[in-house]
Amino acid sequence: MINYLIRKELLQIRRNGFLPKLVVVFPIVIMCVMPWVMNMEVKNIGVCIVDTDRNTESQRLVHRLEASNCFVFKGQQPTYEAALAEVEHGKADVILEIRNGKYLIAANAVNGTKGAMGSAYLSQIVATQTPVPSAKTTPTAETLILYNKHQSYKLFMIPALLAIVMMMLTGFLPTLNIVGEKEAGTIEQINVTPVSKRTFILAKLIPYWGMALFVVTVCLLLAWGIYGITPAGSLLLVYILAMLLAVFFSSFGLVVSNYSDTMQQAILVMWFFVVCIMLLSGLFTPTRSMPTWAYMTTYINPMHYFIDAIRTVFIRGGDFATIAHEVYALLAIGLLMALWAVQSYKKNS
């Protein structure tokens, strides 16, 4: 009988004027726009120069600054205070003061990353220009960057986007599902039929897994077509990981749906959890930098396992052995959640 229930779910999704469009358009929009948006590259930092020495040094500096795509030269100011006013106006981000052959870099650090990166880049430029007298004792260091050779933020973000799209579609749509049936009253009709809890929940989950498969394919094709980015590792592993994530999120959505009385409640609760899961997963910031208590939560955060594993496969080109631990963890959490979804669905009170 499960095939009839699955068919019903699919028909309902198709009949809903909005959902099919959403499933197709959402991944496309996200993949087309977001890689440009989610770009933490530090670019176009406005630099203001205060040169009290007034020699050719600053002239050459300005030329170098304009040559780099990192900085935009925002003009010279006579005093440090005048330059600070520029920063307060939001016209400049960094002040470079040259006084008696010494340099002072003052960066607006309201955005910590931008401030740190900006001042680091600027000091590199200044340092290469001025010969360091003590160079003879220090060894030279060269840097080798692995995997993401071109330092492309897009390559870093595409697996994350895949995760976000999956989370939005396979997480939020099931959340609205059961609570929707509750509000429409049809759930009562199902409850008096001999359909078992397991069958009912499974029939609700399977369409979303199919949807996940479709969405992953669309995302991968777009990443390849638009940005020329393809997974460094095996495609099969990417699919396996994505499906495991879909199992978790669709089950989680149903759990929330089972406990909610109205759609608004369901969405808000889901949104709350999704934001926490996402922020604590290492999607945007490294988990290692977290304090211990926050780091502990990553052990039960499926998104953390997913994002670690998918980046290993997608960017670092890892094989199954390198991500086995994550796969098992995801599988366990996903199954647990699916069981909970079955358990929390009440056929009678």
Binding site: M1, Y4, L5, L11, Q12, G185, E188, Q189, T193, P194
Partner: peptide
């Protein structure tokens, strides 16, 4: 062994007549 029809209208409004019949028949195996 029972059938039930509730106060509130209890078919799926977004399915067609024959789809509703098939669904509930299928549920009962």
């Amino acid at each position: 062994h029972i059938g039930y029809m509730s106060q509130r209208f209890s078919l799926y409004e977004d399915l067609t007549v024959s789809e509703n019949i098939e669904l509930f028949a299928g549920i009962y195996g």
